[in-house]
Design a protein around this nucleic acid. Structure first.
Lengths: 305, 305
DNA sequence: GTTCCGCATGAATCGATAG
DNA sequence: ACTATCGATTCATGCGGAA
């Protein structure tokens, strides 16, 4: 087994991404700072400015991703003035204009969402995982995320936990047992586009934004061993740590020194941080390979007055 | 208890909605035909035309909804040419331009979706439930949809009076007493914005698009007894049937005679179908009451070339 | 060793208060 | 009038210590 490399870069990804080679990474998995958060680093991007802030970054991501690679973006819009803000859906439209294909939207169901009560809404317990690609044909290793059938049935009962069982009468009674019977004899089941994971509220000094199971699932699904994984908003390094554990090479960029330090201490294999040894470009993408918006949409957005 | 009315109207909602009074219904819950489907009725709306097809309908919905009412739209984008189509998110942006507030997006997790597989994607097991309102303050009866709590709470409540009091003397004075009061007798928790409902595999002749539990949840949440519920794309009448069972008045519009007939046979109380006795307008909405998009967004969408 | 139980800890949001 | 800060609210999870 080849030894994998984990490169950690301290710096602003708007600059550092420029140092990466074209068509060099297989998966980009990242959770950028949400609007209004991390005000001391990326400037606490205002919701109204979020799209324009992100587009220069995503165009670099488009450049460094291999043609058959995948970009997974974990994001959720805030509530602003009583409404869900529209910056995420506007971002999807603009990313498509950049040349990205919006292949799929996965749902991360956060089973332990932040508590609280308000007069006009319930707790927000899900986030988007937007899948973008350069081409319609991309690498996907579906069998790697299949759930063993034995576990699967158990998990359906156990993983959704006692709470959900109580809350869902339909599960208890009629159909469920019968349906399990249908699956007897099959080894594994394919998952769906809904992921049920709890956030890890560890006693660690740093709390990860997402649980390790989240990047793990996408790394297994979209890369094989010795592939390259990039997280331009590394934070404390969850994505990189998982990549390394799964024998994938990793590149992480983080602007905040304290997060960068945490990642450095936590991640075992570290190559020289700067200048990074860049992964070799595999097949330089031809401009023609990029599938741009070839069809004019009949729907034209109204111009804001 | 007043007797509730269920009005079923055979016709095209683009025309029939015009017969309804301003500000007359408390909840609109509907699942419009998805793009490309029902080609024999609403003309098999092409994905690219979907937004323009829907906007004249939604402007009527905006008119007939009471100021403190809610519009819940069950929808999910199709995969077109390997991508998730953008008509749903474009529709959200355009509805806001019409004056709707995009208050929330609920996720319906369709739990019992069978394991399935395509080369480039997994089974789609969720749909959007988009909540729109006319005003930031609307009717919401949260206690009506509370769910049983997890085991944790039971244990906590048992030991609450003794253990917790001793633990934190600092709070005894102001906050703590009140906190306990909030929890005493509580065996239920507020739900979140993720709904776990199995699709019903009915033995009925007609297959409902959604399970009864789905409209039931929103009808309980956003209306009280004797309120008015509207479904402009009634189909076989699931929303209307649930409304009636919960003692809400209902108005359903369906273009297809066979669906209309199924609904008629299934729903017990039926008033004369045409012309409908319209619910009286309660408080005519003043244009000024409508909270329009008061802030100019700094982000300006790029014009399609 | 199991199981049970106490406990800290959140990508949150609202409304009020302060500058 | 508009923005920044702050307190109150609430609940699933995993850890660690206790039984």
């Amino acid at each position: 087994m080849e030894k994998v490399i984990s490169k950690l870069i301290l710096g602003d990804c708007r600059e550092q991404l420029k140092n990466l080679a074209d068509n060099s990474v297989d998966l980009i998995f990242t959770s950028p700072p949400y609007a209004d958060s991390r005000s001391n680093t990326y400037g606490g991007v205002k919701p109204d400015d979020y799209v324009n802030w992100f587009l220069p970054i995503s165009v670099e991501l488009l450049r460094v991703l291999k043609p058959d690679g995948t970009f997974v973006l974990n994001i959720k819009e805030k509530v602003v003035d009583g409404e869900r803000h529209t910056y995420v859906i506007e971002l999807i439209l603009e990313l498509r204009r950049q040349g990205w294909l919006w292949t799929e939207e996965f749902i991360w169901h956060k089973k332990n969402s932040y508590p609280g009560k308000w007069p006009n809404r319930f707790r927000d317990s899900w986030e988007r995982l937007l899948q973008f690609n350069k081409l319609r044909s991309f690498n996907m290793y579906q069998q790697e995320v299949m759930v063993p059938m034995g576990d699967w049935a158990e998990r359906r009962l156990k993983n959704l936990s006692e709470t959900d069982k109580v809350r869902d009468p339909s599960r208890v009674g009629s159909g469920f047992g019968k349906r399990i019977a249908n699956w007897i004899g099959r080894d594994k089941a394919y998952p769906s586009n809904v992921l049920h994971l709890a956030t890890e509220t560890k006693n660690r000094s740093h709390s990860a934004v997402f649980p390790e199971a989240l990047p793990e699932w996408f790394i297994k699904l979209f890369t094989k061993e010795n592939d390259w994984v990039l997280d331009p908003f590394m934070g404390s390094g969850t994505t990189l740590r998982v990549a390394q554990r799964l024998n994938r090479n990793g590149i992480g960029i983080e602007i905040l020194p304290e997060y960068y330090q945490i990642a450095r201490e936590d991640i075992m294999v570290i190559e020289e941080p700067l200048p990074p040894q860049l992964p070799q470009s595999v097949e330089p993408v031809q401009p023609a390979q990029l599938v741009l918006l070839e069809k004019k949409k009949k729907y034209e957005p109204t111009k804001p007055e």
